[in-house]
Amino acid sequence: MLKIQNLHVKLEAEDKPILKGLDLTVETGKVHAIMGPNGSGKSTLSYVLSGRDGYEVTQGSAELDGVDLLSQEPEERATEGLFLAFQYPVEIPGVGNMTFLRTALNAQRKARGEAELSAGDFLKLVREKARALKIDAEMLKRPVNVGFSGGEKKRNEILQMAVLEPKMCILDETDSGLDVDAMKLVADGVNALRAPDRAFLVITHYQRLLDHIRPDVVHIMADGRIIKTGGPELALEVEQNGYADLLAEAK
């Protein structure tokens, strides 16, 4: 599904290399986790994959089902089925959550040559998905993420994912700032979306999210590279010993 080869990325403004030859392959239907210390480049990877400005790819490639991602606009990547759940979801005052979601869904449908959803059908769809995530109607009416608690913002990200039905979902520190109950709700939402034709890349600093979203494969990232890949037991190793041993081992 997602194939990243020898990816080198630097900050446009500062000429500072951040990703330094990253290789990663995520197979269809699988859940991969990336763990790593702060500053190792995890968010940068998620932004570069989804097309944020400010980064320059100096080497390497990233493909989604054989389609080159890096040459596309962010909206094109979304239409291809890529979704990033933001570490810090953005507040947009004055734009209703529903308007935002419907605009996004219909823009994608239109770009794929599908019919746009009517207001009525859309409402039905969102209500159904929102119920599963315990998002109430009031939250849907409010402006995008404005006045949402940390947990509400993250649930709203998962709601968008549920409505847009992407095939490749990247979750950047979706557990950060959440208490255990909120995290469970988010994890349940993600687990409900697991499907044979969908893959996940779950980025996290801590192991605890992975108790709820069980990964098939765990990668350890440090200084812009994947330094180790293993099964779920790798996450437990980090939990018990921290990153120090793994980092030392890599050197």
């Binding site: 097309g51 606009e73 962010p74 402006p143």
Partner: peptide
Amino acid sequence: FYLRSRGVGKDRATALLVLSFLAD
């Protein structure tokens, strides 16, 4: 970027942000 990452094209995303700016 947030809007575009959801599939909303640049012009339309800009327009939504203009609406957002004018809301109050």
